[in-house]
Design a protein around this nucleic acid. Structure first.
Length: 666
RNA sequence: GCCAGUUUAGCUCAGUGGUAGAGCAACGGUUUUGUAAACCGUAGGUCGUCGGUUCGACCCCGACAACUGGCUCCA
């Protein structure tokens, strides 16, 4: 994928070398962003501009303006943009000194049509401060509009062939949730009208493939927000087929690769997530805990403890007149101790947001020898994550999810081979699904996050990151390395894929964990009769059912290969005459006997109508049976989206269907 | 969570300050057929929820919820 996609996700300063590599189309779009700013300033001269880069499908400009720009404003803005393009102003580059740039920013000239006294260009001032000492500072000017910009641009505004504003959104300045929120105007631009029309046609097609639309059409899943809750899909029978076919594939693949399966509950005590270290990092994303009533003695003890704490609190907040400072300090100490004990004695349960701690406890449930390693524990575990409401998105981002999870416990020596095997498993899956557009992202820590976002083990970070990098390089896998995106317990590889709509998703993950096993005190007895802590690899090549199926729906446009199709075969008779039904019925029975998902339509409905219905339902194969077929011992095959395939002996057709399913033929 | 928009029948959508329509789907009939839609009929909605303005609200205003497009986050 283009580097702009990454820039959009992770806005880092482009280097001058990056900029020099900007394609013609990117230059057009970047220039169009300047033209957009020019137009907005004509309408609202006080607007303040921040970033205005090209992105994968167009460009945007972030701005601050008291007027809320709405799509109704687009017409007026586009009219101004057209004027600027028609004027065909050249984009003139000028290098300036830092002092000059600061002065122009102060006067409001930068990112404006002229000086704006009392309205300094505050974002440009901030951007200036980010330009490293010694790097040239440049302006680009088109007409009256002067912007702080390293370029490059097209020669003239007239070189922007076709453009259109698309949406308005909010964006945080520099992506910081706590920073100021700006208005972001998105648009797109192309060399000419034809290219732009093609793009919008593609968007239309993408909309048709949207997994939410197809999911409803095909009856795959529903999200019942009223009774179940947002982000918690219900799998309908046809969607459940997809879930179970995926599980079958995963179980077979993992079995072959030496995994063993386990099953764990959906809940665990608070202690689990305190020990794992997830709570401090992750509490926001977990459903709030369930407080369990205590019983018997525990309850009496708890009550006594609560009283003691309360009494001590009163005494500490208002010490008696004669109390010495030592006494007060001692009581504060005591209060702290009791409060802690009080907190620990409560009985809280959390819905699990991840399976690893449960698996760690399984590892610890039996004594382990180096001979047991690598131990690969696999589970399709159900997890619950309290994602922010604005994050929820069809099947792609949900609150209840089924992970294709496994944890591999291994020695350092085994690590490389195991990690490589996991990567190979990804590639194997991608082949089954015909996924060719993907990118491996190697996420590392950042030293500034140590002790906050990341466990404070600089040495281990370096060591494991080196190990992963080496594996990737040795196996010749293309990857990009991204700093400051690791898990809190170690570096990871995420596999990004792009849906038909061009949306980017992390579909799979492969993570190293050097921290949590030791927190759980996991160990194995090594050759030299000492206890050692294993390394742990967290991996989920198929991600979650929810996301993977959501993605597959869009990938296939709902036209699943035979092995995955919710309804694989439908048998259609030409009318409901007894002879036809008598011939068709045993074919249906025979296929069912072999676990084929087959239905029959032996009604009197006209054949054209039956076919129309089956095509709309996206059933993979149709077997049409009329008088001619009965006479010859044939069935007429028709494929969804493939049209009539002619008549063949029924035994041969059935055998071929079974084989295609068995091979998971694409 | 933040910004903007949307919410009318199962689905796709009309509609007006004076208490709602179409097509498809569903259901009941008729129809007996060779590869994407045969005909007739029936039923279906306190117009997202709650509150306000009004003689009167699906329509105007407000709050909330869900969804959509982004941002932040992420499997």
């Amino acid at each position: 994928m283009s580097s702009d996609q990454n820039q959009a996700i992770q806005p880092e300063r482009k280097t001058l070398e990056d900029r020099a590599r900007m394609t013609e189309l990117e230059r057009i779009r970047h220039s169009c962003a300047h033209v957009l700013a020019t137009a907005i300033l004509r309408l609202w001269p006080e607007a303040q501009f921040a970033y205005g880069p090209p992105v994968e499908n167009g460009f945007y400009y972030d701005l601050e303006l008291s007027h809320r720009i709405a799509p109704e404003d687009f017409e007026a803005i586009e009219a101004e943009m057209k004027r600027e393009i028609k004027a065909n102003h050249p984009f003139e580059r000028r290098e300036v000194t830092r002092a000059e740039a600061m002065a122009d920013a102060q006067s409001g000239r930068l990112g404006g049509l002229g000086p704006r006294p009392g309205n300094p260009s505050r974002f440009k001032l901030d951007l200036l401060a980010q330009i490293p000492e010694g790097e040239p500072i440049s302006y680009y000017q088109n007409g009256d509009f002067v912007d702080l910009c390293a370029g490059p641009h097209v020669m003239r505004t007239g070189n922007i062939g076709a453009f259109k504003l698309t949406t308005v959104a909010a964006a945080y300045y520099k992506g910081d949730e706590k920073g100021p929120q700006l208005q972001r105007i998105y648009g797109t631009a192309f060399k000419n009208r034809t290219a732009m029309d093609e793009y919008f046609k593609m968007l239309e097609e993408a909309k048709r493939r949207d997994h939410r639309k197809i999911g409803a059409e095909m009856g795959l899943f529903v999200i019942d927000t009223e009774f179940v809750g947002p982000g918690m899909p219900l799998w309908l029978p046809k969607g459940t087929v997809l879930v179970e076919e995926l599980e079958k594939l995963a179980k077979e693949t993992e079995f072959e690769a030496g995994y063993v399966r386990v099953r764990t509950p959906h809940l665990a005590r608070e202690r689990m997530y305190r020990t794992s270290g997830h709570l401090p990092y992750y509490a926001e994303s977990m459903f709030p805990p369930m407080e369990m009533p205590l019983e018997g003695e525990a309850r009496a003890r708890e009550r006594e403890l609560a009283q003691k704490v309360e009494a001590l609190r009163v005494r500490c907040s208002a010490p008696p007149a004669g109390a010495t400072p030592e006494e007060t300090a001692r009581q504060l100490e005591e209060l702290k101790r009791l409060e802690e004990a009080h907190g620990q004695s409560s009985d809280r349960y959390y819905l699990k947001a991840m399976n690893c701690p449960h698996h760690h406890r399984i590892f610890d449930a039996q004594p382990r020898s180096y001979r047991d390693l690598p131990l690969r524990l696999a589970e399709y575990g159900t997890c619950y994550r309290y994602e922010q409401s604005g994050e929820l998105f069809g099947l792609m981002r949900v609150r209840s999810l089924n992970m294709n999870d496994a944890h591999i416990y291994c020695t350092e020596e085994q690590f490389a081979a195991e990690f490589r095997a996991v990567n190979d498993m990804y590639l194997k899956y991608f082949k089954v699904f015909g996924l060719s557009k993907y990118q491996m992202r190697f996420s590392t820590h950042s030293p500034s996050g140590l002790g906050k976002k990341y466990v404070n083990e600089p040495g281990l970070w370096k060591k494991t990151e080196d190990m992963v990098r080496t594996v990737l390089q040795e196996s010749g896998i293309q990857f990009v390395e991204v700093a400051n995106e690791a898990a809190f317990y170690g570096p990871k590889i995420d596999v990004q894929v792009w849906s038909a709509i061009g949306r980017e998703f992390t579909i799979a993950t492969n993570q190293v964990d050097f921290a949590v096993p030791s927190r759980f005190g996991l160990h194995y007895r090594d050759r030299d009769n000492t206890d050692k802590t294993p390394l742990c690899i967290h991996r989920a090549p198929l991600g979650t059912h929810e996301r993977f199926i959501g993605f597959s729906i869009e990938h296939y446009g709902g036209n699943f290969p035979l092995w995955l199709a919710p309804e694989q075969v439908r048998i259609l008779t030409l009318g409901d005459e007894e002879g036809l039904v008598r011939y068709a019925q045993p074919i249906l029975q025979e296929l069912r006997k072999h676990q084929v998902r087959v239905e029959g339509d032996f009604s009197s409905t006209p054949i054209k109508a039956k076919i129309a219905e089956v095509e709309a339902a996206r059933v993979h194969t149709m077997l049409v049976i009329g008088g001619r077929d009965v006479e010859a011992g044939h069935v007429s095959v028709r494929l969804h989206h493939g049209g009539p395939q002619g008549a063949s002996p029924k035994e041969r057709v059935m055998a071929d269907i079974l084989q295609a399913i068995q091979e998971r033929r694409s």
